[in-house]
Each structure stands twice: as structure tokens, then as C-alpha cells.
Design a protein around this nucleic acid. Sequence first.
DNA 1: TTAGTATTAATTTTT
DNA 2: TTAATACTAA
Length: 715
Amino acid sequence: MGKLALKDLNPQQRAAVTAPDGPALVLAGPGSGKTRVLTYRVAWLTLERSVPPGQVMAVTFTNKAAREMRERLQHLLGHARAGSLTLGTFHATCARILRREAKVAGIPRDYVIFDADDQRTLVRQVLRELDIDVKQYRPTAVHGAISRAKNELIPPEAYQPSSYFGEIVRRVYERYQERLRANGGLDFDDLLVETVRLFREHPEVLGRYQERYLHALVDEFQDTNMAQYILLRQLAARHRNLFAVADEDQSIYRWRGADYRNITRLREDYPDLAVYLLEQNYRSTQTILDAAQAIIRRNPNRTEKRLFTRRGTGLKVTVHEAYDQDEEARFVVNTIAELTLQGKARPGECAVMYRTNAQSRALEEAFLRAGLPYRLVGATRFYARREIKDLIAFLRLIHNPTDATSLTRIINIPPRGIGKRTLLALEEAARARGVPLWQIVEEVGTHQDTPLLGGRAQGAVTRLYRMVRGWIEAREGATVVQLMDQVLAETGYEAYLRDGTEEGDDRWNNVQELRAVAAEYAGLTLTDFLADVALVSDVDNLADGVDAPTLLTLHSAKGLEFPVVFITGLEEGLLPHSRSLDDPESLAEERRLMYVGITRARDRLYLTYAFRRVRYATSEPNAPSRFLEALPPHLTEGSRIRSGKRRVEQAIAWTTSWTPTATPSFTTGDRVMHRVFGRGVVLESQARGDDEEVTVAFETAGLKRIMGSYLTPAD
DNA sequence: TTAGTATTAATTTTT
DNA sequence: TTAATACTAA
């Protein structure tokens, strides 16, 4: 012993790290150093048990987690050994296996990965083909159902519809899968499904991997889905060295097919499973931990953990009621500014979390107005942006011309005279003859006499064909950047994007950014570039070293920690989200989401909610989240949380008394109430847009000019 | 037939 | 606020 220093670990952690061979499960609370345990376990296996790192597979939840883990292992093991470790997300690992085993798996070696956006496009296409009303059967809903089926490893032919909607799904699923294959594509879910299938149908291939991977380790096991679980079981069947780290209270991806009951399954499937507990929290103050416990304790069917910390009581949790999302944002920005000025925190130590990406806008505006920088995770994810998807579609087409989804995306971008009608004719011809769309384009482009199209359209298609043909020929010996430059130049994409508006310039900047990413791929092939681009998430690209607050959703906050955390929008309908109110399981997940958010905080926690919030472009009154009421009053300071029901009534009364027209609702002599300044009498009122400016003489604060929306009538 | 403009409807979370 | 669709001018 002694090659690896374990003295920094507590006894619980050390026991897990040095667990004997065999199946093991680490049940860990937040901030208990579970990722650390995982990392040390790998190092320990290598250094103390002489397991070659090449025979260890570790699966993380995000690429970022994988990268960080590799960096730490580079310190512990050295570059060479850390490099030979198989380390990545399920999806990335499967993508690599499928690429390697493409032939046996019956998958084209140069398959393209369809992301959620592509999947939805394809579903929409299929719905149109089957003459199904997209208004009645929403592509997102249908796609969700298909995705769920896939994650449960149910193929189209085994899909059992239990309703008419299910019947629609079954039909679409079948056709969708055909089209996907015809496009040479695998969607996100297929990466897992196809790997499981490969292993099932080809035991000799599975045998090789089973033999190779002496140890398999998984982080965030509570968020694995059925396919992922089966995959782990397949891989670990030979050596039975499966090491899983989980916290069922942090399971927040049920909607994506994740099933925390995999923890129970693991116990059942491996009766000799060794279970280790990590209960000491190294992150948060006791107050924050107590607040988190108060929330999560209300969830049924969970095993209570005794979380404790040695960090002391700490500060109270600040609860703040704002008038609307703008005032909420101002509160956040002001508080961060104050903390920074007082030297209590650096800007980069603060995080602002919210349930939905749409909430980031008001926050961004407040930061911009205050002239403070911020880092935004998600929102319009970089790789989901139109211009980026366009450019990638061009590259995908070069990579694999049969990818009809990419072809239809860019066939008329920038506009080149191939409109709806022409595209329809081409698609019709392709379908009729059962050949890829590209083949029709090729025929039109090479044979001059096609009865299919009119002269003008034929010319346009021919020009497109020749252009793409040229790129495909240039592909050999060209780097990704060179190809990209050629595409940009020949399509005139810059001129198309830069239409003189600021937005156009922004979009062009994004293209430049993608070009910069491609430049880093100097030695890599187009295939690698496309695979990587499809599998990165936004958190992965979160730049370190910028000292600015981070804005992110509660989901993307998983696995991170910050000294100062704001959770905003704690309102009924938002957190818990309105979509989850009717289902107890979903509601429990919302509570876990809140729990995850709270437990990201080390020292300071702010919980904010707004009285009114703009949703669907209209401002609506909101009641404070039920989760706030679960907080014991002795842990909090700031706004008192009033009962949700009463507030809704108040809000409704208030709304009806308020006329959004230019007619002032306050007149001289009215008695009014302000949250901060208290009671007062109106001296004068003037319309201001859809609000009004009211001059009020307050009893204590004196004469103030206030926007009418900040005032309530007092009797 | 295409391309640009108006309109209408919808809007959780992401590997 | 966006994205898909309907409408209109060229």
C-alpha cells in the first residue's frame, strides 16, 4: 500500500474506494465526494490492484464530467495511463463501439447521429407522409413516445399501443425507423439500443468486450434508463465488477426514460451487491442541508439518508418576493453586486438557476443593464442554432449524401430557386422508386433531360448537385476547416446571413466560432468532427476561468457546486412546473429538482419568486411554490411566504382591478400601498405606455414617483 | 413557382 | 419569442 494517498478520504469514502472485487453500489448524498470516490477507485485499481487502465471503463453523465475525471487521473496516474482508460458518457462510448463494430452490427460505418432536432424534423416528415394532422398529434409528443419506447428497448414491431394515440405512435415509429435507416442515421436513442442489440445478437462480440473490461464504473447511476442498465449488465456479466454510484434523491431525468428503480434492480440482479453509504456532506452549511432535507423529506418511497456536515450552521436562506421577473432579476444582480463589493464572494462563485430556459432572458437583460458579464449555459444551445445546424447539414451531406434530412434542410439555403414544389417532386420521385433523395438529385444533375422538372428548377438542382459533388471530391485530403470554408464561399452563406441586422452579425459570429472549433480538429477526420459535434452538450463548453456569474437551468446544474446560489422563479406552475402537477411521480421529480438546486450551494442560498410573471407573452399572477412552504421558518429570512391559495385570490382581485390600457387606474386622493414604502396617498397619476406613473405621498417615506404596477389599492 | 411577409399557435428539463 | 404555416406579390 501507499502508492495512492488515501488519507484525504473519510472512512466511508475509503471503504468504497478500496471495495473488494464484485458488484458494488455507493449510495451517496449530495456533496459527499462521490465523483471523487469514483476517480480514486479507478486510480486505486490501477495502482494498488495492478489493473491495466485499458481494462477499465468509466461512464459519466456528461462529457464535462468525463474530461474533469480524466484530468484528475492524469495527475494521479500520469498521462499515458489516464489516456488508455475508456472514459465517457454512455452515448459517446456506444457511438465508438458501433463505429468499430459497424460491419457486424449491420450499421453503415459512416452513420450520422440524429440529434433531438433532427429527430423531430424526421417525425414531422413522417407525420406528413402518413397524412396525420400535426396539430392533433404533435411531433414532440410522438417523438417523446418513440424515444421512450426505444429506451425501454421496444422495437416498432413489438410496440403495443394502449390508446389511439399509441396506435398513431406505432405507425409513425415504424416508418420513422425505416426513414432513419434509409438516411444512414442513428438517433440518440439508437446509439444505446443498437449497442445492446449488437451484444445480444453477437455473443462473440460481447465476449470480447466482457473479457476486455475487467471493471466497469458508473456515475449518476440513478439517471440511467433501461437500455443503459441492460448494457451495463451485459458488459459486467463476465467479471461482475460493476461499481455504481447513485443518489436516488437526485434523479431528475425520468422524462428522458431514466428510472431510479434501476437501483432496486441492481440489488435484485446482484444479491451479493456490496453497499456503501456516503453521508457526510463536504459542501454546504447545515442550514442549507436542513432546507434541502425539509424539501426532499416530503417525497414518498425513499430511504432516508442521515446527511450531516461539519461546516457549521452558516447563514440563513434568504427568501425574496419580487413584483415581477424584472424586479426578481434586479434583485439577483444587485445582490451579486453587493456581495462582490463587500468582498463576500467573487462574481464567478455565484450561480443563478431556473426551471426553464425562457427565464434566462430577464436575468440576462438585468446583467446587461448593470453592465456586468455573465456566463450562460444552454438557452439556445450553440449546436441547435439555425446557422450552425445549416452548416453542419452541409458537412453531413458531404459525409453521407444519402442523409435526406440534411439534404432537405439545405437544398434551398441560401435560396437558390428550389422551392416547395420542386422539393416535393424530387421527394415523390425518390419515394416512388425507393431510392435516396440524393440519387434523384444526382440524376437530375447529370442527365440533362429530365421530365421531372421544369427548366428553371432543373437548372437550380443541377447547380446544387455540381456544387455538392465538388465538395465530396474535395473531401479527400482537405481538412474540416478547408471544407467548411469552401462550403461557405460557394454557397455565399456569409452574404445570406449578414443582412445588415445585428442579429445577422451575431449569426455570422457563431459560424466563425464553429469554424474555430473545426480548426482544433486539424488532424481529425470529418467523421470524428461530426460525431463529436452531435454529442457535446452545452455545459461541456462552459469556459472555466471567467470570473462571472453562471446562469443555468436546474437540470444542467447537476454535479456542479457554487458558494452562492440563487434559485429563481419559485412559483406554482414553474417549479413545480405546470406540466407535472397532475402526476405524483412528476411532482416528486420536481421536488428532487429543487433539492438538487439547493444542494449546489456551499454558503449562501437565495430563493426568489415573482408575484407576476410574463408567460406566453402575457403577464400572469403566480402563487409562490409549495416547496417554499415546506421550509421551516427558522431557516429562512426575508419575505414571509403567504399561503398560495390566498395569494391567488389576491392576485386575481388585483388583476381585475388593473386595466392594461392607457387609462390611469389611480386618481388623486386614492389610498395606496407599496411593498417597501408602505401606505400613501396619490397626488397625481399619468399614463406611461401600458403602465402609469403615480406621484404618491407616503406616510413615512415622503414624496415618491412610482410606477403604478408597483402599487396596490389600500382601503 | 418562388420568396418574402403576415399570421397564428405554442412554449420543460437534455445525452 | 419562435417557428411553422398561410398569404401575396413578383
